[in-house]
């Protein structure tokens, strides 16, 4: 088998796996309701008049798009990696002639069709109830949207693999991810559109990685960004993706040197 065929085979296995666990996936899909809870709150606020550029319909569009982005870019690698390290099943992965991170990435990629399929009804509902006028009408925005989604997913995978690799040194590395997630809730635009933050906090928000994992793709399809802002955000996004990937690989390599598997 050529290298390409092997990669393809791994993606196929991942796809079959994601089909087998469709029940779990559906539950996970249904538990992603934090943006909806926030949406109802902000819509109640906007009833007495818009907040900034957000009226009730804009809030609905914003948070529903957030759900779509979240479902398309969600991942489990942090939990998977820490569990495999703890139980020793990582040893089996290490025997294979492919880097475990590549295997994880393939699994992630192969779950995408199913994710897209589950998100499709939601997208239809959004368009039927809210119409299309709330979203960007510029073709270029829709062209770069998938790229922004990919960037968001890459940052998430990078962070998850970084923290997962830390489990090679520290048993409770997952609690670090929990703390990360709390920051993500605040600074990614997941619970509040970032532009509603007071002005003095905006530079921090733009500088942290969280915006590029969630808010950035949403801002694109809602047409909030001009060409220059778009470019700057992309540089930040892929810079962070690269940074976390390198960090994850380095920590993983270092950690493996002292890793003694538990049977597996």
């Amino acid at each position: 088998m050529s290298r390409k065929e092997k990669l393809f085979a791994m993606v196929r296995i991942g796809f079959a796996e994601s089909l087998a666990y469709r029940g779990e996936f559906l539950i996970w899909f249904l538990t992603t309701n934090m943006p909806l809870v926030m949406m109802l709150l902000w819509m109640a606020v906007a009833k007495d008049g818009p907040v900034g550029r957000f009226g009730t319909r804009e809030f609905a569009a914003y948070f529903l798009t957030t759900v779509v982005v979240r479902l398309l870019t969600g991942a489990w690698v942090a939990w998977q990696l820490t569990m495999e390290i703890r139980t020793g099943t990582l040893a089996r992965r290490l025997l294979r002639p492919v880097h475990p991170f590549v295997a994880y990435a393939c699994e992630q990629a192969s779950a995408l069709p199913l994710r897209a399929l589950t998100v499709a009804p939601l997208v239809v509902i959004i368009l039927l109830t809210l119409g299309t006028d709330l979203f960007s009408s510029e073709l270029s925005h829709w062209v770069v949207f998938p790229l922004a989604l990919a960037g968001a997913l890459c940052i998430r995978l990078g962070v998850m693999m970084t923290i997962g690799s830390l489990a090679l040194f520290w048993d409770s590395a997952l609690s670090l991810y929990d703390a990360w997630l709390a920051l993500f809730f605040v600074f990614s635009g997941y619970t509040i559109p970032l532009e509603l933050f007071p002005a003095w906090i905006q530079p921090l928000v733009n500088w942290l990685p969280f915006r590029y994992m969630m808010s950035f793709p949403v801002e694109i399809v809602m047409g909030h960004l001009d060409g220059r802002q778009l470019l700057v955000a992309f540089v930040y996004q892929w810079g962070y993706a690269l940074l976390f990937s390198v960090l994850a690989l380095t920590i993983f390599r270092r950690g493996l040197k002292r890793y003694a598997a538990f049977g597996g």
Partner: peptide
């Protein structure tokens, strides 16, 4: 973290 959106909301 859960208080932040509420603080922002009620500042408006």
């Amino acid at each position: 973290a859960a208080l932040v959106p509420l603080v922002v909301l009620f500042s408006q």
